[in-house]
Design a protein around this nucleic acid. Structure first.
Length: 905
RNA sequence: GCCGGGGUGGCGGAAUUGGCAGACGCCCGGGACUUAAAAUCCCGUGCCCCGAAAGGGGCGUGCGGGUUCGAUCCCCGCCCCCGGCACCA
């Protein structure tokens, strides 16, 4: 601990009353103090409850943007608040440092990705420091450093041992521009999520993580996540896509020796009597088996070749025309025993279910379209509840309501029961079984890029695929590699890296040159923060037990599926390795909204930066032409509707930047940027500054007891709390009404701000309450205050104000804390507590309604009872006007809130 | 199409989930201070109507119904906006 009095020295020169609010100066001062005193360093302290507050770590792209400011301001409010509330708070920060842009920079500018990344991190860290965020930087994690990615490799090897990591040949999404494989999740509407290039199909040997092994658990786990936003849970559930149905064998009309039947998956076994044909996915190997030697073979092969060349997104677009070709083979519907034709259809997915379906055109839109195109029989087997369906159908009937018809012994059953009876029958007759299918696919982690974690596998001609022994980790990324941007990955071209010896037989061998998807890095970094310097394991289980799960995770909605699902998977996989005890990594999740701003466009110069617009006449500052004011959109470089946080901080300071980000909208909603709003936030801080400096000399005469500085407001609510334990001196004379009103305002504000932060992250209303508090304090005529009780009340108010402001605007709070005579940093001051007794109003103003409309208000002593209040209401002159000559039918009284007199006539 | 979230003054947003709609901020208007401006401080500000004024009345939370003494909030039926998923059998 620093010697007491040290802080006073820092602030001494700035505490004179005349001094104007100079954010740049005081922010630099306090950031230096925090760094020197290691104020935010945290160690495990079992005497206090823990709180793990985490914001999604950034990709070190070069500079922070307003989205970061918002994200980290939200997290910082919470971390500082919880610290002041007495929690042992873990609040770390790090860098998601592997990824494509570094490699692109290498190609375009000739900078090595490592150097580019390091520079960016260094710069962005100073930017974050200038925001005054309360991170424990001693726990900083950088995923591109061997100390981190070694453990990616270690985990990979453990997964490999357990069969959770495996390799298979598969058609992958290939981005021709990035020259890399993309996960399904990284393809958006057929385009690369990063560069928007149209994605094509390519066959490659790929590494996968068997996330599907946890599909069931990942889905059921969603039910436990009650503190996650509903829409994120919905998205996760959709993505996992569990469906219950049956698998059934449809025997071939002419069975092949080793292929007696085709297995299909359906959720609508109740419609099986309506299955009038079958469809196979074009990629299915069964297709070739069936057509071999048939006259249809040629046409089928042509069709398959044509379809499989088409890239997937195009082919699977929902509005895509249904196309197919008859194989010449037939199967037998196991229920009707009729022969049905087997087709190949472009809309059947090979990767889902069994890659083959029974087609029920009467009750499936796709099958109906297909059957209509090719003239296939449509048979109604579900009659709707009204009984109005007649053949020929004009459209498929897909509702799961009604009764089975044309379904043999099952006819007449309601749909739900038919499903069960038919499933029973299928199981009893041994032709199939109930099954659960997931939409979720295994996670392809192979990337043909340099700037990622090398996959620790060696290929030996004799021994085959050999994992790198644990002792040889990390497999280091070689520094000396070519960056051409052409052809194979740079790693594959680095002979010194590729050529190695087999760990088993010591013979010549080659290294795997694929690197891991960077989502691997971010799938467990939150565990690493708990013991960031652990050298023998990825995590120290004792430390992880102390801190996990993350109590509050904060980040963008764009990670609702990918990152969050992978992190949930990893947490379980690592749990099953015995390193972690929790199932779910993130107890509470807050997805903050986007930061948006109006866009400006000039017909000559295209998108304009806000600074390039002359706002007087809405003209382009370059050519003077009228500027088209576009809609409010997410801030983006391409649309140029951006505000650089650095400029903002230079002009107004970090406290203003933080305050505005928190005040302009509730965290989960989109925030519309407004220069005027920023001015408003700055003005407010100036108001606080002047207020405190005006009042500081007044209360300066009073003794500041450093052991209990905030205790005047902090201690009074402890378990044994009563008026007696309040350090505020009981005044000799009865307290003046001004004193009582002031203290009431103070304690009401403490309650409001505390509740708003704690309950629903209502930072905007918490700040509004602080503004009201300040407005109220400006109305107090402090100069007239002399009595000890009055001055105590002022001191209490000012201290509460500064303490309550701390999480939002920590620098100015520290400075004002010092200016009011305190010598210890605010960061660990106890959060103020309100005294419930002081909240009580002496008089109440109650609205009085007549027939539901407010006609008057009565002001009454707070302790009046129902009858007294009603009596006063009826006696009110204005109310009298409205009830004169009418019969009172009813009087509704809401406890201390409202009177409603119901009259008739 | 399915799922989720929304729709409140000129604007961003409040409202203890059935009890004074519009807190707080922005914008705008007025005043004080100033030689003047900026800054600052104070006051006003949903819309419409009556009134010279003090006051008073009506309307108002996307639209139409309903429940209730009373609805931004609950129910039914629509309209619109945003986000996600989308041939998953």
């Amino acid at each position: 601990m620093p010697a007491s009095g040290q802080y006073v020295r820092f602030a001494a020169g700035i505490s004179h009353m005349e001094r104007n609010y100079n954010p740049q100066e005081i922010e630099a001062t306090w950031q230096r103090v925090w760094a020197e005193q290691q104020t935010f360093r945290v160690t495990e302290d079992s005497s206090r409850p823990k709180f793990y507050c985490l914001e999604m770590f950034p990709y070190p792209s070069g500079r922070i943007h307003m989205g970061h400011v918002r994200n980290y301001a939200i997290g910082d409010v919470l971390a500082r608040f919880k610290t002041m509330r007495g929690y042992n708070v873990l609040h770390p920060m790090g860098w998601d440092a592997f990824g494509l842009p570094a490699e692109n920079a290498a190609i375009e500018q000739g900078v090595h990705p490592a150097q580019w990344t390091t520079q960016n991190i260094r710069y962005m860290r100073t930017q974050l420091e200038r925001l005054g965020l309360s991170y424990d930087w001693s726990r900083e994690v950088t995923t591109s450093e061997p100390e981190y990615y070694k453990w990616n490799q270690w985990l990979f090897l453990k997964f490999f041992e357990k069969g959770l990591a495996y390799k298979k040949r598969s058609a992958v999404n290939w981005c021709p521009s990035c020259e890399t494989v993309l996960a399904n999740e990284q393809v958006e509407e057929g385009r690369c999520w990063r560069c928007e290039t149209v994605v094509v199909q390519k066959e490659l040997e790929q590494w996968f993580f068997r996330i599907t092994a946890y599909a069931e658990e990942l889905l059921s786990g969603c039910d436990q996540l009650s503190a996650w936003p509903a829409r994120v849970l919905t998205m996760q559930r959709n993505w996992i896509g569990r469906s219950i149905g049956v698998e059934v064998d449809f025997p071939l009309a002419e069975p092949l020796p080793d292929l007696p039947a085709i297995r299909i998956f359906t959720t609508r076994q109740d419609t099986i009597f309506g299955a009038t044909f079958m469809s196979l996915a074009p990629e299915s190997p069964l297709v070739e088996r069936l057509v071999e030697g048939r006259p249809e073979a040629r046409a089928v092969r042509e069709f398959v070749a044509r379809v499989s060349r088409q890239e997937k997104a195009l082919r699977t677009a929902a509005d895509r025309e249904k196309e197919g070709v008859f194989t010449g083979a037939c199967a037998v519907n196991p229920f009707t025993l009729e022969p049905i034709p087997i087709w190949v259809a472009n809309f059947v997915l090979y990767e889902y279910g069994t890659g083959a379906i029974m087609a029920v055109p009467a009750h499936d839109q796709r099958d109906f379209e297909f059957a209509s195109t090719y003239g296939i029989l449509v048979r109604l087997v579900i009659q709707n509840p009204e009984g109005t369906l007649r053949e020929p159908l004009a459209a498929s009937y897909e509702e799961q309501a009604g009764t089975l018809v044309n379904s043999g012994q099952f006819s007449g059953l309601p749909v739900a029961e038919g499903k069960e009876r038919i499933a029973d029958f299928i199981e009893a007759s041994g032709i199939g079984a109930r099954t659960v299918n997931f939409r979720l696919r295994d996670w392809g982690i192979s990337r043909q890029r340099y700037w990622g974690t090398p996959i620790p596998i060696i290929y030996c001609q004799k021994c085959g695929m050999v994992p790198v022994p644990e002792a040889d980790l990390p497999v280091m990324l070689p520094m000396d590699v070519p960056f051409t941007g052409k052809g194979a990955s740079p790693l594959a071209q680095a002979e010194a890296f590729v050529k190695t010896t087999c760990p088993k037989c010591k013979g010549p061998a080659r290294r795997e040159t694929d690197t891991m998807d960077t989502f691997v890095d971010s799938s467990w970094y939150f565990l690493r923060y708990c013991s960031p310097h652990e050298t023998t394991r990825p995590v120290d289980p004792a430390k992880v037990d102390r801190w996990m799960a993350v109590d509050q995770y904060i980040g963008g909605i764009e990670h609702a599926v990918l990152h969050l699902l992978y992190a949930r998977f990893f947490t379980r996989a690592v749990r099953d390795l015995g390193l972690v005890k929790v199932d779910e990594p993130f107890t509470r999740l807050l997805t903050q909204g986007m930061v948006c701003m109006e866009t400006y466009r000039c017909e000559e110069h295209g998108w304009l930066l806000p600074a390039e617009v002359n706002k007087d006449g809405w003209r382009c500052s370059q050519c003077g032409k009228p500027v088209e004011r576009g809609r409010v959109e997410k801030m983006s470089k391409s649309k140029k509707n951006i505000v650089d946080p650095e400029h903002l901080i230079a002009k107004y300071g970090a406290d203003t930047a933080r305050l505005f980000s928190l005040f302009a909208a509730p965290p989960e909603k989109d925030l519309e940027w407004s220069d005027e709003g920023v001015e408003g936030a700055y003005r407010f801080l100036g108001r606080v500054w002047r207020l405190v400096h005006e009042l500081a000399p007044l209360i300066g005469r009073q003794q500041v007891s450093e052991s209990a500085p905030a205790a005047s407001v902090a201690a009074s609510q402890s378990a044994r709390g009563s008026a007696k334990t309040s350090p505020l001196k009981t005044p000799q004379a009865p307290p003046s009404s001004v004193t009582i009103a002031l203290r009431r305002l103070t304690h009401k504000t403490i309650k409001k701000v505390t509740d708003d932060i704690e309950q629903e992250f209502q930072f905007n209303t918490a700040i509004a309450a602080l503004m009201e508090f300040v407005n109220g304090l400006y109305k107090v005529d402090a100069k007239k205050m002399r009595a000890n009780a009055e001055l105590s009340a002022i001191r209490e108010a000012i201290e509460a104000l500064v303490l309550l402001l701390t999480p939002f605007a920590p620098h100015i709070a520290e400075e004002l804390w010092a200016a009011t005579g305190h010598a210890t940093t605010l960061a660990r001051q106890p959060w103020p507590r309100y005294e419930a007794a002081l909240l009580q109003e002496e008089v109440l103003t109650i609205p009085v309604q007549v027939n539901g409309k407010v006609r008057s208000k009565v002001t009454i002593p707070a302790d009046w009872d129902r009858d007294q209040i009603i009596e006063a209401s009826r006696a009110d002159a204005k109310v009298g006007e409205w009830i004169k000559g009418k019969t009172i039918k009813n009087v509704v009284y809401v406890e201390k809130r409202l009177v409603n007199i119901v009259v008739e006539g």
